[in-house]
Design a protein around this nucleic acid. Structure first.
Lengths: 352, 352
DNA sequence: ACACGCTGATAGAGCGCTCTCCCGCGTGCT
DNA sequence: AGCACGCGGGAGAGCGCTCTATCAGCGTGT
């Protein structure tokens, strides 16, 4: 009965079937499909017809088994080394950050020409990390692109040890021999500092990202360094978690301790956006009273008013490059690690 | 030489190897690993030791080949039926929308307990669609979760025809026998309408989403319907594309034609955020002069000032449910399509 | 005339796993 | 004692594909 009910759900055609229909051997069909070696055009044609008539689609698993290629790459979003408290909230936070979307977008740009799809993996908690790792070891993906922020994240090391071809977004904290793409974060922060100084701001505070995140530290360091060069070695500074809400809280704290500040540099746009909101809540005008400079040039920079002056990080291009590097490593293994550092760019808008 | 250079890169252990070490047959090892049937505890233990000592990891492809399960599910982001002009910009736009992140987050919530990872696929252009489809037919994923917005999107139909287990986010435009999760969009819009009316707003305009998107149409219809019931059958209305920039343009147009309006309902928060920005640019106060109500309760609702009154769409829960439904369909096929409709909820904040 | 390369096609050996049979053994019932 | 039965374990047949080794046929050089 069930047979009669679904005539469409027949056993899918195999190479064998196609070969029989075309009157050739399995091997020949395989050659035609994979486009290798010379096959008589007439035979090619008849094979193609047979493929069409049988509705043949190669079986990915069977192919993977022998080629040892999965045809998929993992995009691993890795967290810190320790457990998070509220897993689900953290997850939403990670994925809702425009940064994540930009990475995904860039990865697609890099992968699309090769017909490869990214498998998304979250390696935030130890359990998830184990799982992701074993998934990769099982050969379900040929390599990993890792967005790892925390310096104490063991994921890059684990992947390397497991022999999984890996490319990181962001330099590794430890000096691992692994390819990566990154931004010259210090330079970017310097751009922001020079700009604020040029705008005549002399009581400037910073809202930094988590110190465990290397990019956050680099931005903070670069900013302080440049400001010191301008004769301002001591700056008020608050730490936040790269979220808008965190930025708001940090700004509020800063305002309590330094009500007279006239400039703020936030380590990303989300926090800058939060800072602007709080400044306004306190009756301060941006940029007249306080100039604000963000970082990233994400959608958050143009979401509110005033439009945010920010340091552009070309996340999409970086992610696309990360994908390309991984593809390259896969294509010809054995060469050393490549790292590509992108240069930031100041985008002046209305908030400064 | 290459042999000598990488002792670690040996041929990975197979079941056979483990069996030899443990002194049992392949079948027994397989049973232990998959936890089926009773195996003598002593033997189980020795197998486990052998697995550990050999560093055995099952080969996913080989397993898939015989089980006919990929152990992966696809998350398909599907676009309209036609080509987009600027592929890359559209892509960034899609992925940067908080909606996407929330869906991903929810999908993870639903999938994690089962150790399944989502494969991300973009089926925006015809070429990409073909590709995604063939990927699925090859059995690289066991089913698809489809975020399809445009009513003329052929993807759901194609997947159904291909026999790929599918669950949609958002009801299908055509009455396809396919499972889905959705929001009672009309009800949500009604909530917004009643609220604006209760606030005493009588010159209300709407910023609608693309008419090709069913959810957009439903929200518009529901809003108009409720307003008509309040004695306001004719409302100014502008269309936009669910982006902030689109919302800004729509608001600007609306303001030219109806400078006296005192309320705006936008079909999502991004557009509402844009509307607020433009209203402010025009020197209008929100909510004193113009009340604004958004839709979704995404991060955009709390990103700016004033905090947006909005209609909550529990995207994460919906996506998690979508994942669960798909898992369920996979676990026991043959049952009819399930659809789960979520109820919206009004979240009153400061913009109204 | 023969050896020789070259092209185009085939046969068949796996890839690593699951799963259906089947078998031997201990147990309880007649 | 004989027998059916449940249980733990092994043997081996594939799953659908790729790819190497092999071979037939056909000029070509000497």
């Amino acid at each position: 009965m069930s047979e009669a009910l679904r005539p469409a759900a027949q056993r899918p055609a195999t190479l064998e079937d196609v070969a029989r229909v075309a009157g050739v051997s399995r091997a020949t069909v395989s050659r035609v499909i994979n486009g290798i070696r010379n096959v008589d055009p007439a035979i090619q044609e008849s094979v193609r017809r047979a493929v069409a008539s049988t509705g043949y689609v190669p079986n990915g698993a069977a192919r993977s088994l022998v080629t040892r290629r999965a045809g998929a790459l993992a995009l691993v979003v890795s967290g810190s080394g320790t457990d998070e408290r509220d897993e689900e909230a953290t997850r939403t936070q990670v994925f809702t950050d425009p940064f994540f979307g930009r990475v995904v977008s860039g990865v697609f740009t890099g992968l699309r020409p090769h017909g490869v799809h990214p498998v998304l993996m979250l390696a935030d908690a130890p359990g998830a990390r184990e799982q992701a790792l074993s998934y990769l070891k099982q050969g379900n993906a040929d390599g990993a692109m890792v967005v790892s922020t925390h310096a104490d994240d063991p994921m890059p090391g684990l992947l390397l040890a497991a022999g999984v071809p890996t490319v990181l977004f962001g330099r590794p904290a430890a000096p691992l021999p692994v390819s990566c793409v990154d931004l010259a974060n210090r330079d970017g922060a310097r751009l922001a500092a020079d700009h604020l100084h040029a705008r005549g701001r002399r009581r400037v505070a910073t809202i930094a990202g988590p110190p465990a995140v290397r990019a956050a530290r680099d931005r903070l360091d670069g900013f302080h360094e440049a400001m010191a060069r301008h004769g301002m070695p001591y700056l008020p500074h608050a730490e936040a978690d790269f979220t808008q809400a965190g930025g708001e809280r940090a700004m509020a704290r800063l305002l309590v301790e330094h009500p007279d500040l006239d400039g703020v540099f936030a380590a990303n746009d989300l926090m800058a956006q939060g800072a602007v909101a709080v400044l306004r809540d306190h009756g301060l005008r941006v940029p007249e009273d306080v100039a604000v400079v963000g970082f990233d040039d994400s959608s958050a920079a143009t979401a509110g008013r005033p439009l945010l002056t920010t340091v552009r990080q070309p996340v999409e291009e970086m992610a696309a490059e990360m994908a390309r590097i991984l593809l390259d490593v896969l294509a010809r293994p054995g060469r050393g690690a490549t790292s590509v550092i992108f240069e930031p760019e100041l985008v002046v808008r209305r908030s400064s």
